[in-house]
């Protein structure tokens, strides 16, 4: 982990409030592993908006190329509004890479990557890592409509992957009509295979809940990356917690090893990647 600065190489508007921010910093790139994230200083107040926030904001690292790393973000509030105004050459405070990472699939396993909206970035990171290792993978990516297709940019930039990539929209305006889990299940039906699978997912909580449920019923191991409200990213504010399912629903044996302290897990240091069956997929009503 580094407490450092990075230079904006590009901040590309992909439409519908989705942007691709490309940042240069060698140290951060060197420590990236798929699933990790950075805390970014968001820059200056944009006229006509509330003052720039004090706390940094968490974003997944989507891709590393040389000493440049990419972040894909959607403008949802004051901090991301500031970010959208960042120009090439601007210096940004960066803390990272932070958090754990996805567990690589076992030899012979096929990785199923499920990404929804701005949850797609960690799946780009996974696809890059898996491809570099010649591992077998398939991706199912979903957005609400074609207007949000900018979220696919990390996959669009790799046309050679197209046969493995399945795009879906909720309104059917592009690709499969439905959500990512439906797209994945439809593909399973159309192309049955006996290869062992391992699921990796990131997206809204409703999507992660569906992933966990389906994976459990199919007896497939699944890891999810959660996006809770984070203050610090390094385990000192204890704000970003998610509920430990082993604590609430675990066996007597499980529970005997735990104390009340173990009920809430910090997503920044214990995560953001968790076993989908190990946590309660509820963000306490994040307002989005």
């Amino acid at each position: 982990m580094h407490e450092t600065v990075a230079t904006v190489v590009e901040n590309r508007d992909l439409g519908s409030g989705v942007h691709l921010l490309r940042l240069r910093n060698r140290e951060v790139c060197a420590e990236q592993r798929a699933g990790r994230f950075v805390m970014l200083g968001v820059g200056e107040t944009v006229e006509g908006n509330p003052p720039a926030p004090m706390l940094r904001r968490p974003f997944s690292i989507q891709r590393v190329e040389g000493d440049v790393f990419d972040v894909l973000y959607r403008v949802v509030g004051v901090g991301t509004t500031c970010m959208a105004a960042m120009k090439r050459g601007r210096v940004v405070e960066v803390l990272g890479p932070l958090g754990n990472a996805f567990t690589p699939p076992a030899p012979g396993e096929q990785a199923i990557l499920l990404g929804g909206g701005v949850g797609i970035p960690p799946m780009v990171a996974m696809a890059d890592a898996l491809s570099a290792n010649n591992a077998d993978w398939k991706a199912f990516l979903g957005v609400s409509s074609t207007a949000d297709a900018g979220c696919f940019v990390g996959f669009d930039d790799r046309p050679s992957w197209d046969s493995r990539v399945h795009r879906a929209t909720m309104d059917g305006s592009l690709g499969f009509h439905g959500h990512v889990v439906q797209a994945w299940l439809a593909d399973r039906e159309a192309n049955p295979s006996v290869t062992k699978k391992r699921v990796y997912a990131c997206g809204p909580m409703v999507m992660l809940r569906a992933v966990a449920k389906v994976a459990a019923s199919l007896n497939i191991p699944a890891e999810v990356s959660v996006e809770t409200m984070m203050g610090c990213g390094i385990g000192i504010c204890m704000g970003c917690v998610i509920e430990n399912k082993r604590f609430t629903e675990g066996s007597v044996e499980d529970r005997s090893t735990m104390s009340p302290y173990d009920r809430w897990l910090m997503a920044c240091t214990k995560g953001p990647v968790f076993d989908a069956q190990g946590i309660v997929l509820d963000d306490g009503g994040l307002l989005h």
Partner: peptide, 17 residues
């Protein structure tokens, strides 16, 4: 040991949290 509260546990406000 204490559990602490359910999330959300933090909210940013003007010049503070």
């Amino acid at each position: 040991p204490w559990e602490g509260n359910a999330p959300p546990r933090i909210a940013e406000t003007s010049a503070g949290m």
